[in-house]
Write a protein that binds this DNA or RNA. Structure first.
Lengths: 105, 105
DNA sequence: ATCGTTCATCGTAAATATACGATAGGTTAA
DNA sequence: TTAACCTATCGTATATTTACGATGAACGAT
């Protein structure tokens, strides 16, 4: 794409777009829902519920972690992930600023 | 990416991911904010406020329209765009389902 | 120390997204 | 009709994402 122009926008717009990018794959939406419904949050459990290879799931988890939508901590040989509610709510609130005050044309 | 596995998820997860994808570029976030603050919504006005070529802006508008976040209607030689509040609110509500009931691990 | 388990990272191939110039299509004005 | 204008689309180059097998790193148990 030649050269990216993403840096020429405000920090807030870049941040919100980045969070949206992390949400832009059904596997990552599914992962968030799984973490929301399980007390256990081992990677293996997540892999079992997705039609994807372990390496691919790990990549998706990394992307969600990168933008702060989930937290992960090492627990012995396993890794435990969970949703970061604070940032998810922050993203939801940011969407409020996009509502049109005016009706549709 | 070899073969896409996106179809192997639920319709709702695919839909929400698709809306998030439309929001995943700062230019498109900016466009929504511009539409939210202007009574006029001609493409030319939007192009003037972005560091992008007209062809690129048109592409971004097309992507927002594809998922129903904006509506566009031809008004003489110009085209008028506006935010589709209904779908934006629908997306925001869908994010509510992703909050963790459990605290962070 | 060795083995099996769990997960992250590397390397790589293919699909998709981004950006722009050029051009086409449609509208109003002269 | 011609000219000028506005926007969408086409063609194309490059960047990024997606997906997987293979490998590596860390841990617990034997």
């Amino acid at each position: 794409m030649a050269v990216s122009k993403k840096t020429e926008f405000t920090q807030e717009d870049i941040w919100l777009a980045d969070v949206a990018k992390a949400l832009s794959h059904p596997a990552r939406i599914r992962i968030l829902k799984i973490l929301n419904n399980m007390s256990s949050c081992m990677v293996g459990n997540i892999v079992d519920q997705l039609p994807l290879a372990q390496a691919t799931v790990s990549q998706h988890l990394k992307e969600l972690k990168r933008v702060g939508l989930i937290n992960g901590e090492i627990d012995g040989p396993k890794t435990c992930y969970c949703v970061n509610n604070k940032n998810l709510i922050k993203a939801k609130n940011a969407l409020d600023k996009l509502y049109s005050k005016i009706g549709c044309c």
